[in-house]
C-alpha cells in the first residue's frame, strides 16, 4: 500500500491501467470494425459476445476497476502537480512537451464524459431508445440488430459529430499516453525513447482513423441498411 502513496508507484498504476485501457480500445476497435462486413458481421460478433454470459460481466468489472484507478490517480496526481507550482511564470517557454501532454487531464475528463454518453447510447439505450436494438426488429437470423442501430444512429449528424469529437480527444490523450506509459514502466532508453514517441503518435492516429471511419462511412452512405 506504500506504493499508492509514492510518486512513482502511482505513476506505475497510471501506466499499467493505461496500458490495459489502450489494449481494450484496440480490441474494441477490431470488434467494431466487423460493421464493415455488414449486418452479418457485427450482429454475429455481438451475439457471440453476449453468449459469453458471466465472462462479459467479469470483463466489465475489470474494465470498471481499470477506469476507476486511472481516473482517481489521474486527478490526484494532477492536483498535486498544480500545487507544486502555486505561482505561475509571467513568461514560460516549453521546448519539448506537446499539446497532448499538457491537456491530459482535460482530454481524460472529456473521454470520461463521452464514455458515459456512449454507454447510455449503445449499451443502456437511454438516449435514443427509438433506434435501439430493443425497438428494432431482430435481423433475418433472429439476432439483435446492432448493425441497423449503428447505421441509424450515425446517420444522425449530431451523434456522429459527438463521436468524432470524442475521438479527437482520444487521439490527443493517446498521442502522449502511449509513449509515456512505456517510459514510466522503465522500458525506454536514450535511443528507444524518440522512436517510441513516434510509434505512440502513429498508434494514436491509427486508433483515431479506425474509429472515425465508422461514423464517416455511414454518413457518406458507404454503409447502409
Amino acid at each position: 500500500m506504500q506504493m499508492l502513496q509514492n510518486s512513482v508507484g502511482r505513476k506505475l498504476v497510471m501506466a499499467v491501467t493505461g496500458l490495459f485501457l489502450f489494449l481494450f480500445v484496440v480490441v474494441h476497435l477490431l470488434g467494431n470494425s466487423s460493421v464493415f462486413m455488414g449486418a452479418d458481421g457485427i450482429n454475429s460478433y455481438a451475439e457471440h459476445l453476449h453468449a459469453l454470459g458471466p465472462v462479459v460481466w467479469i470483463f466489465r468489472l475489470v474494465l470498471l476497476g481499470l477506469f476507476a484507478l486511472h481516473i482517481f490517480f489521474g486527478i490526484q496526481l494532477t492536483l498535486e502537480n498544480r500545487a507544486a507550482r502555486e505561482i505561475e511564470y509571467n513568461e514560460k517557454k516549453n521546448l519539448r512537451t506537446s499539446f497532448g501532454a499538457r491537456t491530459m487531464i482535460y482530454t481524460g475528463l472529456i473521454i470520461l464524459a463521452f464514455l458515459l454518453y456512449h454507454l447510455l447510447h449503445f449499451t443502456m439505450h437511454v438516449t435514443n431508445p427509438e433506434i435501439s436494438v430493443g425497438a428494432l426488429a431482430p435481423d433475418a437470423l433472429g439476432r439483435a440488430d446492432v448493425f441497423t442501430m449503428m447505421v441509424l444512429s450515425f446517420q444522425k449528424f449530431f451523434i456522429s459529430l459527438v463521436y468524432v469529437g470524442a475521438m479527437v480527444t482520444l487521439l490527443l490523450h493517446l498521442s502522449h499516453g502511449v509513449q509515456s506509459l512505456f517510459q514510466t514502466l522503465g522500458w525506454l532508453g536514450a535511443n528507444s525513447l524518440p522512436v517510441m514517441e513516434k510509434v505512440g503518435r502513429a498508434a494514436a492516429v491509427v486508433i483515431f482513423a479506425g474509429f472515425i471511419s465508422i461514423p464517416v462511412s455511414i454518413l457518406l452512405g458507404l454503409i447502409n441498411v
Binding site: S7, V8, K11, E80, A84, L95, R96, S180, Q183, T184
Partner: peptide
Amino acid sequence: MTEAMLNAGFGNCSNHYECEAS
C-alpha cells in the same frame, strides 16, 4: 528519495521531458 521528493512538495513526473531540454 522518491518519498522525500513528494514530501518536499515537488510534483509528479508525467513525461513532458522539459527537464532534459532545459
